[in-house]
């Protein structure tokens, strides 16, 4: 799997998947459909990731999910060369990044579709989706 991106179904056949709550499930459900969404306050328009139950700006509790463009830039990254979990033994090296979306919020994600050594801070990226189990798809990013 050139270009890193752990995929998180590496050694020992284990997949590492998000547990979901009422608050976070819509994010993962959208990802399963190949869409990147960010929780948005309908009162003041603030975008918040990861979601919290109240709007930190206006304290409103009426939320929707904004469809993000999927465009962004690498804010920071690390090439991980030492597996800290048995499930990742076959995944190294892989790139974990903070990506700043065009809409503002930053996500923890992985960079795929390029050699790990070619990733730089500021590099433009776009969303790519990786199915890790029958139920779970994770938003990744690749060079734009």
């Amino acid at each position: 799997m050139s270009g890193g991106g752990a995929g998180m179904s590496g050694g020992e056949g284990m997949a590492i998947v998000p547990g979901m709550t009422e608050l976070t499930r819509p994010y993962w459900d959208a990802a399963a459909e190949g869409r990147l969404v960010i929780r948005e306050c309908r009162g003041c328009g603030r975008l918040q990731h990861p979601p919290v139950p109240a709007c930190p700006a206006c304290h409103g509790a009426d939320f929707g999910w904004r469809e993000a463009s999927g465009e962004g830039a690498v804010y920071s990254y690390t090439i991980i060369r030492h597996a800290t979990h048995a499930a990742l033994a076959d995944a190294i090296p892989y790139v974990v990044a903070l990506v700043e979306l065009a809409e503002g919020p930053r996500l923890v994600t992985g960079i795929t579709g390029c050699p790990p050594e070619s990733v730089t801070v500021g590099m433009p990226v776009r969303a790519a989706f990786r199915r890790v189990t029958d139920e779970v798809t994770l938003p990744y990013f690749e060079p734009a």
Partner: peptide, 23 residues
């Protein structure tokens, strides 16, 4: 699942948004 064991990361402290990427 399917003979393999999965790690389901509970959502606490935003870990469920980081661990699946190997952070």
């Amino acid at each position: 699942s399917g003979g393999a064991a999965d790690i389901i990361v509970p959502e606490t402290g935003n870990l469920s948004f980081a661990w699946p990427y190997g952070l």
